[in-house]
Computed example of a mutant assay.
Amino acid sequence: LPLAIAGLALLSLRNGFTPDPGQWYFLGAAVLLSFTFILNGRAAARISALALSAIQLLVVGMFCLLLSALTEDWPDTITPTMWLWLILSLTIGTSVRFLLQTYAQGLTSPSHAAVIMILEPVWTTVLAFIWFGETLSASQLAGCSLIFAALLVNRWRAVQKLLRGR
C-alpha cells in the first residue's frame, strides 16, 4: 500500500500537497468506491451480473437525473449529435463496462479484483501518453513504476511461481 500511495502521489501531485476541494471530493469518492467495490464483489458472487448491474445503474441514474434537474441548467435544444453521444456514453461507456467489471468481480475475490484495479491510474497515464501525446515527467514515470512495483510486491508468490515455470 505505501508503494501504491507513493506512486499515486508522484502521478498526481505537482507542487506539493496543497489539496483543493476537488481533491477532497476525489478522496471521498475513492473511499466510497472502495466500499462499493467490496460489496459489489460479494454480491456479484451470488447474484446475476446483469441484474446487479441493471439495479445499480438504474438507482444511480435516477438519483443523478434528479440531482441534475435540481442543480444544473439544461440546454434549450438537444441536437441529434448530442443524443448520439449520450446513448453511446450510456451503453458502451457505462453499461457494458460496468457489466463486464461486475461479471469479472463475481469470478474472483474482492482482494484479487482490487489488486487488478490498482493499475487503473497506470493505464490511464499510459493511454494518455499514447492517445493524446501527453508528455510524462520523470516523477510520473516513477509513479507508474511504483504502482506497478506495489502490484508485484502484493502478488510476489504468484510472480515467483510464474518465474519458476509452474
Rank of each mutant, 00 (worst) to 15 (best):
R14V: 11
N15Y: 14
N15Q: 15
N15F: 11
F17M: 12
P19R: 04
D20C: 00
P21C: 08
F26H: 08
L27M: 14
G28R: 06
G28H: 07
A29T: 11
L33G: 08
S34L: 10
S34H: 02
F35R: 04
T36E: 12
L39E: 03
L39T: 10
N40P: 04
N40Q: 13
N40T: 15
A43H: 06
A44T: 06
A44P: 07
A45D: 01
R46S: 09
R46D: 11
R46F: 05
A49Y: 00
L50S: 13
A51V: 15
S53W: 09
A54P: 02
A54I: 05
I55P: 01
Q56T: 09
L57D: 01
L57S: 07
L58M: 06
L58A: 14
L58W: 08
L58Q: 06
V60F: 07
V60I: 12
G61Q: 07
M62N: 04
M62F: 12
M62P: 00
F63P: 01
C64N: 08
L67A: 15
S68L: 04
S68G: 08
S68H: 09
A69R: 10
A69E: 08
A69Y: 07
L70R: 06
L70I: 08
D73H: 10
W74A: 04
W74G: 01
P75S: 06
D76H: 00
T77H: 10
I78S: 01
I78W: 03
I78C: 02
T79M: 00
M82Y: 00
L84K: 05
W85I: 09
W85K: 01
I87Q: 01
I87G: 00
I87P: 00
I87N: 02
I87Y: 02
L88K: 03
S89I: 06
L90M: 12
T91A: 07
I92Y: 02
S95N: 00
R97M: 15
R97K: 07
R97W: 12
L99G: 12
L100E: 05
Q101W: 14
Y103I: 11
Y103N: 11
A104N: 11
Q105A: 09
Q105Y: 11
G106E: 07
L107E: 12
L107F: 05
T108A: 14
S109I: 09
S109N: 13
S109T: 15
P110G: 06
S111R: 13
H112T: 10
H112Y: 04
A113W: 05
I116Q: 03
M117D: 09
V122C: 05
W123D: 03
T124R: 05
T124M: 13
T125C: 09
T125A: 14
V126E: 08
L127K: 00
F129D: 00
F132Q: 14
F132G: 11
G133M: 13
G133V: 09
E134D: 13
E134R: 12
E134T: 07
E134C: 04
E134G: 04
T135G: 04
L136W: 06
S137Y: 03
S139L: 12
Q140H: 02
A142N: 03
